[in-house]
Amino acid sequence: MLEVKNIHKSFSKSPVLRGIDFKVEKGEVVAVIGPSGSGKTTLLRCISFLEKADEGEIVFDEYTHDMVHISKRDIKKVRMNMGFVFQSFNLFSNMTVYDNVMEGLVTARKMDRCEARKKTFEVLEKVGMLDKTKNYPGELSGGQQQRVAIARAIAPDPKVILFDEPTSALDPELTGEVLDVMKKLAKEGTTMVVVTHEMGFARDVASRVVFMENGVVVEEGKAKELFENPKEERTRQFLSAMSKHE
């Protein structure tokens, strides 16, 4: 459903992505793990065109685009079917919780306000934020903000949702409530790509895990197999280092 081929990306001559191939099937939850600086976040940002790749191809929604020469219109078309959840939430601070969710439906997709309202309540109920619709983001805790951000991302029913370290900016206390919402989405069959340091989530919720380091995919496979029986030495080292932290 979403496939990227041979993505290269450098920041001022230092390569961050060095030929990544990456595929997500409908209904899959793919966890992307790896040490800091391995290029996980850059991969998501290239897929969503928040960064321009130096080379690469994307197949999404049955269309193939050259990632370097794609037009603004095609970028918008891709984004219309893509949700993105940021590490730092990025809720619109000038809008209430309700308007944050409504915005993508009403302004971007010209949905009828009443229909959009129904959808907004539906997704806010799903993330457990129905009692805060009139609040501004500044009045919410980090966990609550991230749940609203998830509601905003899922409201237009995108074909895939990209999560960029959604719990990294949260107190350990608050990560649970966000992970619970993500588990719920996974159970409902939402297609998700999750860049994460939460090994528990990757192991228990993801259908597939991709381990990246130094801008390349070192190993990928079914979550259970990769965690219990990693093929690559480097994957083993990383997983054992991570498990000491848990």
Partner: peptide, 27 residues
């Protein structure tokens, strides 16, 4: 205004003028 606001506006499907009018300028 933090860069993330514009990026979030793009990711919900707004174009540049809409993002400016609805998100960046009000802030």
């Amino acid at each position: 205004i933090p860069k993330g606001q514009l990026e979030a506006a793009y990711m919900i499907g707004l174009n540049y003028p809409q993002a400016m009018a609805r998100v960046i300028l009000p802030q």
